[in-house]
Design a protein around this nucleic acid. Structure first.
Lengths: 280, 280
DNA sequence: GAAGAAAGTATCGCATTGTGATACATAGTT
DNA sequence: AACTATGTATCACAATGCGATACTTTCTTC
């Protein structure tokens, strides 16, 4: 049994982040998001979508009263649903609204979408767009193929940047001190036996990605998965995103990925970069 | 100039909804979501993604102090970003997390996804899955095609149920009193010149959709757009969702839609229904 | 099926926390 | 430069959220 009581994220970052000190902060709001985040933790750590009140307590770090208050508040607002039979809570459909709110205003995604769709048709593969958020690469646009697994079709998925090809190329095309800060803040644990966890190795890998303009990750974040990523660059050479094309075995191997998916990813990323700079 | 000060949604539904009376409710949480919703209103009513503080005030119904407190709180939490140059706020990438949280646990979407992807390849069209939320049909899964417009590719989009084909079929396959309640709560305004707004007409249309098992909407929610929808049914005959396939002119007309897209939508919806009942 | 444990719900006095009027600072306009 | 609008900071008050406690219901265990 996992111990969930410990290591709950500190929810008022206003205290820890120097940029945010002194800014007004409403603690109740932070707590309500702790409750919503509890459901994500519940999915990864407990493998269940519904949470009872006491599970919310453990996963969110709130006491029973607070967990109840915020859970019921979120039910009233439609962001959680409650099964009156089991008395358990689950994420509510209204949560989707915020995805739309973000995406509608996201110029990069708007420009990238048609280009990604075209790219997905070349070899009938999944094609993704990733962006950095903290120490994670987060998938913002995904063009899915039927054979992929459900979890890897969904936008919003996070992967630690250090061990996934989109993360590698984005870190590589980033001011070095920023990249170092991300690595320093990352939890460098092995995901598969091929995951690199040594800072020197990671930096060498990043240097190579910078030189080549792409990166192919060989089973570092997922076994039997050789995936390609190429950076979407602004004029100043900074990466704002990465195009990611996973190659699943047995259909793809290291050779065929290099021959076909690498050029596709690089070209797709460059087309997005071009459209992006044209639009400015 | 639109008048935004009025008709801001009442944010503590705990007062109005009899089911929720007496439940604990944290007002600050409600207000923070008013701020997030302000961005959606801003997009539709002001056609801009960034909002200044005073715009947030008007769109959210909060006073200046409150708008500042909650906006800064949301920045600290990563759900809003602030441009320090213009001092304007915009939706933050962390909002995507909640989409993932909801979708990962959404069995219907999980089952439907591969079936929808296959369907999209038959005629190389967009294929969507819609579900009811209040008086709206909300798109939860969308398999996009390059030629569609960006806004119609995004999950989370809402359309009034009464005037869109997915809404019509879902209302048609719903207990009549519930459907009546939705119509009664809807704002029956004409979206295009073809939009039906008379309750009797709408009910006749629903009856036909129930009889046929599908519905084709001819330019009722969007001009030059003939779109098809078929219901995803549970064993008891209730609709839990709708498969929606838009046919854009000039590629599609009323005849070709009936000949090709209708059978595809009906078949796709039935396959999802079957998988759904098998899984239970 | 009774006893016990665990999970969920309701209550309520206290003081912490959010409130919002006011004043101040900065950016944009005429 | 004067003015207006918009954004930021301050602060005393009391409303609001807090959380210990008690109560109720549901699930185990024997």
């Amino acid at each position: 049994m996992l111990d969930l009581a410990d290591d709950v994220l500190p929810y008022p970052p206003s205290e820890t982040d120097p940029d945010r000190r002194g800014k007004p902060f409403v603690a109740s709001v932070g707590k309500c998001f702790q409750v919503l985040k509890a459901f994500r933790r519940g999915q990864t750590e407990l493998r269940q979508r519904d949470l009872g009140l006491s599970e919310i307590c453990k996963l969110s770090g709130l006491d029973k009263s607070a967990a109840q208050r915020f859970s019921e508040t979120l039910v009233t607002l439609g962001y959680l649903e409650k099964d009156l039979g089991t008395r358990r809570y689950r994420p509510g459909i209204a949560l989707i609204d915020f995805y739309y709110t973000f995406m509608v205003s996201h110029r990069l995604a708007q420009i990238a979408m048609p280009i990604l769709i075209e790219a997905s048709k070349v070899y009938d593969t999944t094609v993704n767009l990733c962006e950095m958020e903290g120490t994670d690469a987060i998938y913002t646009v995904r063009i899915p193929q039927a054979r992929a697994s459900y979890g890897t079709m969904l936008a919003g998925r996070r992967v630690p940047a250090f061990c996934a090809s989109p993360g590698t190329v984005m870190l590589a095309h980033m001011p070095e001190d920023e990249a170092d800060a991300v690595l320093a803040a990352s939890d460098l644990r092995k995901i598969t036996e091929y995951t690199l966890t040594d800072i020197a190795d990671l930096k060498a890998q990043m240097a190579e990605a910078r030189r080549l303009g792409y990166h192919v990750s060989n089973q570092q974040s997922q076994i039997h998965n050789v995936s390609t990523a190429a950076p979407v660059l602004l004029m100043d050479g900074r990466a704002v995103a990465a195009v990611h094309i996973p190659g699943y075995a047995p259909q793809w191997n290291l050779e065929s990925v290099h021959e076909k998916l690498v050029p596709l990813a690089v070209d797709t990323a460059r087309r997005i970069s071009d459209s992006l700079t044209d639009a400015m």
